[in-house]
Amino acid sequence: MMQVARKGPWAALSDLFWRRPGVLLIVLLGPPLIWLVVIYIGSLVALLVQSFFSIDEFSGLITHEFTLKTYGELLRPSNFDIILRTTLMAASVTIASAFIAFPIAYYAARYATGRMKAFFYLGVMLPLWSSYLVKVYAWKLILAKEGILNWAIDGIGASAVLNGLLALPVIGGNSLSVSYVGTFLVFLYVWLPYMILPLQAALERVPRNLLEASDDLGAQSRQTLRYVILPLALPGLIAGSIFTFSLTLGDYIIPQIVGSSRLFIGQAVYAHQGTAGNIPLAAAFAVVPIVIMGLYLWAAKRKGAFDAL
């Protein structure tokens, strides 16, 4: 039998990897794991540690001692309102995007084939990946008083409806670009693709013969939708809602550009770490979305939503 020539340090190294797969695994996994643990987990721990510090009210310096005082400040009415407002906004954005996403995802998964399928796929993917700031900027153009939306509403003679909407307490305001309605629209637009993709993935997996069976058993299409399709699509819906909910919770740019002056969690984090220099309170505020998302993910995992990611 011919001896295969195995010479040189590379060959020796290769042999070592073959005999000891564990060494290869360490070489492969080491660099990315060190990076993630040191930089990412390390930073998260630094954040968590800071949230247990507090700021000295007189000197404005950070006291490096363990305290729950900073978390206590979150419960003050002005701060608690911020948390409540953000969570409500995240919930309404999530529900609205589920309603708009469903027809798109369903059509793409069930009826579109060939070129139409590619069209729908890119039709969702391009807005998803196009620049976040450009999208927000586009909405600033749309919602401006002299912008296209007011122009169109005037054109069809529906200004009274818009003024009625803006006259509502809480959600209204002087114009769309400084009201909660405006903020909501921009959030909805920017995060919508994140709902469509997982929902479509889940709908693709609904077996056709179940739909046929439901049909054969005499179900109306509405009943099939309610009792067959929706329960099977639920994991995708939950997966999508994780994105829309989490992204809305953490955003601080959209409410700053389009919205009233009332703060959202992200803006509070940004303001406290910046000019105010109150990093402990900023850190405590940042822990809130982590806790809310933790609870949400825990509930979602029990529903099996991660298979649809």
Binding site: L29, S43, Q50, D251, I279, A283, A286, P289, M293
Partner: peptide
């Protein structure tokens, strides 16, 4: 755990990653 760890930076809101790095730099 490793595969969860890798997707964590985009699963958590960007502001968390941002403020976490910021506070690590400041520490």
């Amino acid at each position: 755990t490793v595969s969860l760890l890798v997707i964590l930076p985009i699963a958590l809101p960007g502001i968390i990653t941002g403020i976490a790095l910021r506070s690590a730099f400041s520490l």
